[in-house]
Design a protein around this nucleic acid. Structure first.
Lengths: 156, 156
DNA sequence: TTAATCGTACAGTTTATTCTGTATGAAGTT
DNA sequence: AACTTCATACAGAATAAACTGTACGATTAA
């Protein structure tokens, strides 16, 4: 009776929190899996996750890899256990925000560089379109602001 | 010769900038359409957009509606013109960041409320899981931080 | 060395998204 | 009122994403 309540609440928390996690660019399954690991507070095998999520082991394998890329889970070693074990990282806010802002910062930088190249070409070819040139400058400025904003919410 | 260069550059800018815009949750087409409108600096009809994007008019209709929801374009009235005219809003950074952060803030708030409800239920039913309760509190805190961060990058 | 068990690559299937063409109601024109 | 022209709802086609099952190399156990 008590356990079923705990399971019930766990399910509800997974449902709600994973919605937020999804917004950071994870798939539904990745998000749910992460929250599940976070709530379990112990290393789990792919088989256990597969059982809990009701999805194939292959799905778990690829999802866990994504979560690792996001720095949200860590592989853990345990004596005598042959299977891979994974657990959710603590400090979730810091981890997620860094991964999130980092991705934006990288993208903004990269795009900004591309736009610089375009502007250079613009000038080299002596193209006469003040309005287009002006727009281009605004767009570059956009990326500068964007990068700055994302640096502000970075956590380390 | 000159015009073709301008067209070429326009295309390049669209390609690059739309990648950034896509990151805010717009589809490829929506992003490309918006950048196109932004660069054109004049109100365009659905037919003109359709021609320029090489996509159906229906696509333009739905895309423009999305862009309106994001507050990125405005319908414009012009004497003697029967068709709807749309143009990109100026102040793109401000507009986009507000729409972006606003969406996050709303979501964070809404999810936070759901989690409060869950916590209340937790307490009412006298469920004894200190670890789960602790996790739940952390998750709520997560949403508080998240909301605060998104308020920081809001632009008005 | 053989057998068992692991994680994952890969191909194919299912599901979801994006896009198109037709149809329709609304509004403007004659 | 009849005729155009418009935007968009809707159903279906094309494309993309998510997921599964089989197969295989790698590692451990016997």
């Amino acid at each position: 009776m008590l356990d079923s309540n705990i399971e019930d609440l766990t399910k509800k928390i997974i449902t709600e929190f994973s919605k937020t996690i999804e917004m950071f660019g994870l798939t539904t399954l990745e998000a749910r899996l992460f929250v599940y690991l976070y709530l379990e507070e112990r290393p789990l095998t792919l088989d256990e996750m597969s059982e809990a999520m009701g999805k194939s082991k292959t799905s778990m394998s690829t999802s866990i890899r994504s979560l690792s890329d996001f720095n949200l889970v860590t592989r853990v070693w345990k004596k005598g256990v042959r299977k891979d074990l994974y657990e959710a990282n603590e400090q979730i806010y810091k981890t997620i925000m860094n991964s999130f802002s980092g991705k934006w910062i990288d993208a903004a930088n990269h795009q900004k560089d591309s736009l610089y190249d375009i502007r250079k070409q613009f000038k080299n070819e002596n193209i006469t379109s003040p309005t287009l040139n002006n727009r281009l400058n605004n767009i570059i400025e956009f990326h500068q602001h964007l990068e700055k904003a994302m640096r502000e919410i970075k956590q380390d």
